[in-house]
Design a protein around this nucleic acid. Sequence first.
DNA 1: CAACTGCAACCTGTCAACAGTTTGCCGATA
DNA 2: TATCGGCAAACTGTTGACAGGTTGCAGTTG
Lengths: 247, 247
Amino acid sequence: MEDSVDRPSALDIVRTRSLASLVSQEIEAMILDGRLPAGERLNEQQLALRLGVSRGPVREAVRGLERSGLVVSVRNQGSYVRSVSAAEALEIYDLRAALTGFACARLAGTATPAQRAELEALVLRMEAAREADAAPAYYAANLEFHAALLTHGGGPRGLRIYEDLGNELHLFRRRALVEPENMRESNAEHAAILAAITAGDAAAARVAGEAHIAGGKRRFQATDASRPAMPGAVEPVVTARRRRRAG
Amino acid sequence: MEDSVDRPSALDIVRTRSLASLVSQEIEAMILDGRLPAGERLNEQQLALRLGVSRGPVREAVRGLERSGLVVSVRNQGSYVRSVSAAEALEIYDLRAALTGFACARLAGTATPAQRAELEALVLRMEAAREADAAPAYYAANLEFHAALLTHGGGPRGLRIYEDLGNELHLFRRRALVEPENMRESNAEHAAILAAITAGDAAAARVAGEAHIAGGKRRFQATDASRPAMPGAVEPVVTARRRRRAG
DNA sequence: CAACTGCAACCTGTCAACAGTTTGCCGATA
DNA sequence: TATCGGCAAACTGTTGACAGGTTGCAGTTG
């Protein structure tokens, strides 16, 4: 993400993006970083007041988030941050594996030298982060690596689907545990993917890509993350009583 | 889909679904059946008047459709039905192939006897439709077959992603040409998928599933569909003048 | 004492109206 | 005649307000 290329001024932002899209972006961020935990009720008035807008844009934003799978809505009752079960999380891993394998296979045949160099640089960055035991840096580079994989190999649609699935995964567990041993294993898999792509071996790249996500799934299951974050966080039902004034 | 199990009365519909969701459903239908062609401008007032509601629900519905990829919006200019290029259509086919292959592979290991019977019945229905040269019946059964594949093998998420991609495909070409020869080839591939699933051979099922979508892509390319439906239908840009009162 | 009923507050769903921007047209001018 | 500037209409973005439904509590009754 280059900030120096285009820095949209506040005026440009207001001029090109509607309030609803900004509100959507903000609510999505609030959900992903945990300010709005899974199962939480979204109070339109409260959100509108907090963001300094009216309820209209908030409602539009929530409707978009509902389509993307982050929110569920019940008529006359409200919208809730989605709760993702452990079984669903595993399903999401499988879908991501299929998508990643597809992107890797395709990239093996179509990768340009620049794309290969980009991926290699990211692997090196992750290796450096691992040696420095810098989990946040590794985490960021890992995200970039996978985004590059999907962008170049899966196109904009593949990337968007992948990211939506990732967002749903965040709903279950805010952040994957990044342990030193995991970083080593994970980046070895990254290197395998890159090697297969560089070799132009589509089948091997696909296997490597799928194996990497499967490895992530396995590492995820190995942690205590298979238990839901909130034991009582179930899907909203009509008979469920909504709690009053949580804040 | 059984209609006898749950038949939501008009009152239940009004009571459980919000106007925005109904409007979204209606606009989506209008887009998919061609009443709103690709590139068409969506006039909020006009749509609201036509559907007998206010602009609020229409805006919410459009925002949801935007997330699902059927509509693009430009601030202060309006929303347009997405235009999908030929290259994008081919990309969508590839993604669908990956998803279908994934679902088939999984189904090879997890399919219940009832699910196998359901798939087999659909193959037989398609065979009968093919012999009767009943393209619409074949088309409908084909949709059911793929939906069953994705539902049982890819879960609700897989199905939704698959259907969203299918909707985007409809934007490019309203309806795939179903010719007798295509039906024969297509259903032979269906049978191959079913055989691999029944045999429990995940690898073969995956290959068969991917090959089927690839075959569909090939049959699609063989038609004149690779040319865009509307030569002048380009993406909306800021400088584009919107035409006045099309109705 | 438990269960049911009525009530009041809150919140969502929907609508109508206002402000700002874009757009196409018309006239003025070189 | 072609081009530029201004102007009015239309449409979107946003807001505030009203109606209907739900929720939780309090009172009542068996």
